[in-house]
């Protein structure tokens, strides 16, 4: 006797869900990705070559978003900054995500004393002031994007760890985990192959929020001169340079500020959309 009829509930994928539910997020994130990946090829002018004869021009046909005090094309520099922001995003999400997930998975999945110790380590990490740690690391090593972002990534570890630990604890007593244990799977294999796949959704949500934060921290550190070094563009250094010309050419600061805001808004909306998607599909 073979059962053939099945109630098939079609599940739309995450991508089509986001496209339908929050098109603004999809648009902003898509623009950000295109700028970050193809920036160097899309840029109409050089990002670093100065041309004092064309300094501080308002938006016009040649320079769509105008030029800065050294006559560099703002659009090209924004495209370059997007690439830097994407690097910041990646470094932070990789550092925080890998370490945090590992910590949380082991703490929540094994429990007991392991959990107690790891949870305290996570709390200590959480107590660190992000900027100060980043500044100290950069001061000790050298001002560079990678160093600054690893510091920010360490500050993101607790966020990932908390979520991973919560999911692991919640799953530990679920019946399919007991079934795996009953089949004779080792605890490590259960964590890797049964628990971890169930964390992906919540972790992606954290990644989109913490990634947006990373872009902000990158801008803040570069604004202070601790991140990307001149003449290379980044949102932070562009804002710092624009600051001196607020009275003469305010569009400079506004353009850069709006771009950063739009990227962060897009990522946050994406995070909200994804969290709705996973809430729905887990039921």
């Amino acid at each position: 006797m073979t059962e053939i009829s099945t109630p098939v509930r079609p599940q739309s994928g995450a991508v089509s869900y986001i496209l339908r539910r929050s098109p603004v997020a999809a648009l902003l994130v898509a623009l950000f990705l295109i700028a970050a990946l193809l920036g160097p090829w899309l840029a109409p002018h050089s990002m670093t070559d100065t041309n004092l004869g064309h300094a501080l021009q308002p938006p016009n046909a040649t320079y769509w978003l105008g030029t800065d005090a050294l006559g560099r094309d703002v659009l090209s520099r924004l495209l370059g900054s997007a690439g830097i922001a994407a690097q910041a995003f990646l470094i932070v999400v990789l550092t925080g995500g890998v370490l945090g997930t590992l910590f949380g998975l082991v703490a929540g999945g094994i429990g007991g004393l392991t959990d107690l110790v790891l949870s305290r380590v996570i709390e200590i990490l959480q107590g660190f002031p992000t900027v100060l740690v980043a500044i100290v690391i950069v001061a000790l090593l050298s001002p560079s994007l990678t160093n600054a972002m690893i510091a920010v990534g360490l500050a993101a570890v607790p966020d990932f760890a908390r979520v991973a630990r919560g999911v692991a604890i919640q799953l530990r007593e679920r019946e399919f985990i007991q079934a795996a244990r009953g089949l004779g799977m080792s605890e490590m294999r259960i964590l890797a192959s049964e628990v971890l796949p169930n964390m992906v959704g919540p972790l992606i949500i954290i990644a989109s929020f913490d990634g947006a934060q990373a872009i902000m921290w990158e801008a803040a550190l570069s604004f202070l001169g601790l991140g990307v070094q001149p003449p290379y563009p980044s949102f932070g250094s562009m804002l710092r340079e624009a600051q001196n010309f607020l009275a003469i050419q305010p569009s400079l600061a506004i353009t850069v500020g709006l771009t950063v805001s739009a990227i962060i808004l897009g990522l946050n909306l994406l995070g909200d959309g994804l969290s709705d998607y996973y809430d729905r599909s887990d039921k």
Partner: peptide, 25 residues
Amino acid sequence: TRSLRPLRRQIQLIFQDPFASLNPR
């Protein structure tokens, strides 16, 4: 637990709630 593993194959549990006993992913 470790030395129990080979024995696990000989003793199997069938669970009450078939909605919770299979990994949804």
